[in-house]
Amino acid sequence: MTSVLTKKNLLILGCILLTFVLVQVLMSVGFITSFHEITLATICINIILAVSLNLVTGFTGQFSLGHAGFMSIGAYVCALIVMRFDSVAGFLVGILAAALAATIVGILIGIPTLRLKGDYLAIATLGMAEIIRVVFLNLEITNGAAGLSGIPRYTNWFWMYLFVVLTIVLINNFIRSSHGRACISIREDEIAAESMGINTTKFKVMAFAIGSFFAGIAGALYASYFYFIKPNTFGFLKSIDILVIVVLGGMGSITGSIIAAVLLALVSTFLQSFTAVRMIFYALVLVIIMIFRPQGLLGTKEITDLFKFRRKNERIE
């Protein structure tokens, strides 16, 4: 590593800060109202979820239908902690604990199930998420079906933005590391990867654990933003929602996930006024996109690939 402080990196940092300040200012002058803020929060949380699922499904090629399960673990752990220690410190400890709890469960679930392939893995992860939901439904501490209410709100624009940037940077760097390349090789051809000496199980579990880690963070942010969580919030449909973002944006494209998260949030806001046909429309879009553009909006490319100033040999997709 030569220097982290290259011109480009400083520029990026500047952009990140500028965006943050800009939104913050727009908020304080009331240009972004509290309703827009909720849309913004949904987008941020969905970006974290989608990017982390993209690592598992898009880059490593392991089809998971249980991402909402890890999100729920994060949400419950953080909620329980922040409800007892009602402070910013409690919130941060909550997020950390949430991420770690989700990771541990992710590893425990990942080791047996990741031996499965394709559709079977999808159903197994779906089953795992259902089991997690049933457990939350029956535990005393999670208050069963009634859920946890009155969770203090600490999630704000600052924390959301921070974690979105962290998620993107960390996952992006992971994919570009040798570990990440190993993951991509598993997606391309598991048998070939294995014969090249890659410990496929190890990397699959690693991707799964990292994905769960960030899903846990997303859950924690969710819990502390929306005041209220219950087991049914994190059902099968939530997992599907996240998967749809990933697939719509393109499996193996981080920018794709980001665009899709924003697009879907805006579409969903727009469709709120058409209650009866909303789900029908959603379903139709899903089918039509799969038929006409099964690789998603961006496929495995990043939107930045389109820019002219790209250097050669930087990408591997």
Binding site: C15, V165, T304
Partner: peptide
């Protein structure tokens, strides 16, 4: 990856508008 962030920045900006 850097460009990803530039992109993100533009996107958030557009969204705000």
């Amino acid at each position: 990856m850097k460009r990803t962030l530039v992109f993100l920045f533009t996107l958030v900006f557009a969204m705000t508008m």
